[in-house]
Design a protein around this nucleic acid. Structure first.
Lengths: 233, 233
DNA sequence: CTCTTGTATTTTGTATACAGATATTAGATT
DNA sequence: AATCTAATATCTGTATACAAAATACAAGAG
């Protein structure tokens, strides 16, 4: 962990500012799995008192990004292969369900937005800009989720996706997969246009399967690396 | 709200004691939707300071049982028909998925436990004891969830179920549905025994559909009642 | 009589203090 | 030299104090 300056952009309660700051730090890997989150330390670093830090940490625990051990403190949640498989398994089911619902419920404007998001994604792939690609991918899936008009579903999928963000960059960096990604998005888009639930759901599952392969590979790599050099300060 | 005495049984952090106490109060309807949760008030009532109350309330918000309005405070989450439909829609999908996974993964012991839970449920139905029936129902569904061996899925289903507990009692009271419930459970059990995913998933969906009907009816009833008498102190 | 404005009260947001639990380290003993 | 114990330091859990914001109420102006 290095420079984590709070994002004072908006006028939010401090606990939310801290929450966003820590969340970002965890997702970008600035705070690494297993790293301890000590309240006074963070409080000093962010220039606030312990109270908002505590509240942010508890919120992060509920999101699954942090593990709290009673009377010992919090640490960045370890990602095990099993836990990631669990997340991906649920996400596969929900994403497929999402596409099915979208087939039924997407509006005219939704379809237009989805088309645009597909095109944007294809363009962003050509730029090879990892950050841009990730952003376009999130935007696309967000439109599909919104199309379900089910707030709870949207929230759950967001939360599950979050768990994968820590590996997303590694996954997207592998440009050999870019063509596959574009194709899968096209199939999903076409399925929704033609209201073909079966094909759409199948494509959504394949989409997750491919990500799973890349993410699991990365986790094993990370673990091998950390196994050799267990010190990580 | 009336008598909410904290459950000092176990030696837990106060925030968890408070959390459980408030959660119970909300699920049983002791704290009604829209009722404000004021920190000092609750702190006095439970004989603790504001800190654990705050932490409990924030945890409840993440669980979806409480709504926090910044700089205004927390209140018991309103249940709208839409929000409940959203919850049930996701739960229908996940429960069906759950049964499918259980077909693949349930162990020998799991099957035995499931059989036992089915029998226990049938017996509890005969007693007409609403509380006992609800408990047996939860136990049965818990075994199916556990059979998936997917911690994340188990956690999500628990959380979604929780949203329905506030109406579960009303639903189970309607004894005309008891025979249906028993039958649906039997079908689900048989499907898992024979590893018949399609039938099992279908039965799980029907099971939720039936609950949905009862719950939505109840919500409309409640709303009509509250519409006529908007005061609720 | 109604609307607006100002003040008082209530309530949250944040900081800090203190106690108890846990981890750590140093010292003593075998 | 290794291990056990005791003392110390560190950190969380909880309580409380203070400030700022929001709300409610009352008084005055239109």
């Amino acid at each position: 962990m290095q420079n984590l300056q709070p994002n004072m952009d908006e006028f939010l309660p401090l606990r939310d500012v801290v929450f966003n700051t820590l969340r970002q730090a965890i997702l970008t890997g600035d705070l690494k799995p297993g790293e301890r989150l000590m309240e006074i330390h963070l409080a000093d670093k962010l220039g606030v008192s312990r109270t908002p830090i505590r509240e942010a940490i508890h919120k992060l625990e509920l999101e699954g990004l942090v593990t709290i051990i009673p009377r010992r403190g919090a640490e960045v949640a370890q990602i095990t292969e099993k836990s990631m498989r669990d997340v991906l398994e649920v996400r596969r089911a929900l994403d497929a369900f999402c596409v099915e619902l979208a087939c039924d419920r997407i509006t005219e404007e939704g379809l237009i937005a989805l088309k645009k998001a597909c095109d944007t994604f294809e363009l962003s792939v050509q730029t090879k800009d990892v950050k841009k690609i990730a952003q376009a991918d999130v935007a696309l899936h967000d439109i599909i989720a919104q199309a379900t008009n089910n707030q709870r579903l949207i929230q759950l999928i967001n939360n599950l996706s979050e768990q994968m963000y820590r590996y997303r960059f590694e996954y997207i960096k592998d440009s050999s997969q870019h063509e596959t990604l574009v194709n899968e998005h096209r199939i999903i888009y076409q399925s929704i246009v033609h209201k073909d639930k079966t094909t759409g759901a199948e494509a959504a599952k394949t989409h997750i399967d491919n990500q799973e392969k890349a993410i699991i590979r990365q986790i094993r790599l990370d673990r091998a690396k950390n196994g050799m050099a267990p010190s990580q300060c």
